[in-house]
Amino acid sequence: MNHLNPRREFIRRAALNTGVSAVILGVLEGRDEVLAKSEETDIAILNAALGIENEAIGIYTDALNRELVPSGLQDYAIEFKGAHEGHRDTQVEILRERGVAAVEPHSVDPIREATAGDAVVRRLLSVEAAAESAYLRLIGRIRTNDYLLSAGFIVVDEARHQTIWRRALGLSIY
C-alpha cells in the first residue's frame, strides 16, 4: 500500500525514474542535505528537473488523451502541458550545451480515474504543487547563472498553473 501523499509520490517517482542521487532526492523531499555548488550538482539538478517535467508531461498527456479533463478546463490543460514541454526543452538544451545527454522520458502510470472530474483536476494540481516545491528546493543550489535564470522563469509558471487549478476546484487562491 502506498502511504505517500500524491505530491511526494510524484516527486519520488520522477526522481527515481531519472536515477537521481540519494542526496538530490533528499533535497527534493525537504531534507537539509549538503550539496556543493558545482557543475556536477547543476547536472544532477537538471536531470531531476527533467524527470519532474517528463512526469508532468506524461500525466497531462494521459489526462488529455483519455478526455479526463473537464471540458471547460481543457484549454488550460493543453496550455500547461505545452509549458511543461517548454521547460523540458529548455533544460535539455542547457544539458546539451554542457555536453551531457538528457535522460530519456520514462513511462508514467496512467491516471486512476476513468471519467473526467474534480479528482483528475486535483491530480493535476498535485503535479503543479510538487513541481513548484521541487524547483524551490533546488533553485538555491544552482551554480550557473543561465540555469538559475531559466529555473526562475520556470517556477513562476508552475505557480500560475497551480493557482488556476485551485480556482477550478473552488479552493482558496490567495
Binding site: 555548488k37 513548484e132 524547483y135 524551490l136 533553485i139 538555491g140 543550489r141 544552482i142 547563472n145 538559475l148 535564470l149 526562475g152 517556477v155 513562476v156 509558471d157 508552475e158 505557480a159 500560475r160 497551480q162 493557482t163 488556476i164 487562491i173 490567495y174
Partner: peptide
C-alpha cells in the same frame, strides 16, 4: 535578479517571494 545574489539562502528566500508575486499576478 536571482543570479546576482550568489548566495543559496538568499536565492531560495527571494524565489519564494517571486513565486508569491506570480500567484498575485494570476489572481
Amino acid at each position: 535578479s536571482l543570479p546576482v545574489f550568489g548566495d543559496s539562502k538568499v536565492v531560495s528566500r527571494l524565489a519564494i517571494d517571486m513565486v508569491d508575486v506570480s500567484r498575485l499576478r494570476t489572481v
